[in-house]
Amino acid sequence: MMDVFQLTSFQKDILKEIGNIGAGNAATSLSQLLGHKIDMLVPNVEIADFNEVIELVGGPEQPIVGLMFQVEGEITGVMAIVVDIEEAEYLVQKLTHNPEFRLSEETDGIELEIAMSALSEIGNILTGSYLTALSDFTGMNLQPSVPHLGIDMAGAIMTMGLLEISQVTDYAIIIDTEIRQEERGHEQIRGNFLFIPDPESFQKLFAKLGWS
């Protein structure tokens, strides 16, 4: 079982390139959306068990806003965009032009609904950019599902993204790319794109890119 998850350094490089291309395009979209420069860090390719996946986003009790998409098409898997509560607040503030917005237990009906729909829309745009870039790079058709948004402990949210692959394996290969907006002021964004392809997608990916 484990030997499925031995990646050569060539294969690892391909997966890193996928993170670079996908998250790079998504970062560009986000920067256009917000009117700020967004930096992207070098992607990490991790082979992780389920507990380790959750550690990647701060541990099981870390409050997060998670946007999850199923990836459909010639490659299947899950795309997760993970940000902290404060960062989600900042994104909603920017998008709704409401600098007072706070995401807390008191955030009520209509305000919460607007926030959720703003975040879902950002998720749609970013995942769309990521997958479009990936489609162009691989020549494969890739489509995101509708967004699934959760605001809760990281363990509770992230396991949803692992359900599909957990029926086949106890490990996930994750392409984790962090984006940041560093500013002089206190405003800052940090987010992670986690692309978790289904195990059977890797062979297709490597074959298509001619490095299998």
Binding site: Q70, S145, V146, H148, L149, G150, D152, A156, I157
Partner: peptide, 10 residues
Amino acid sequence: MFQVGKGTSF
């Protein structure tokens, strides 16, 4: 954890 939409396997 998620509101389940149409055509999803969550």
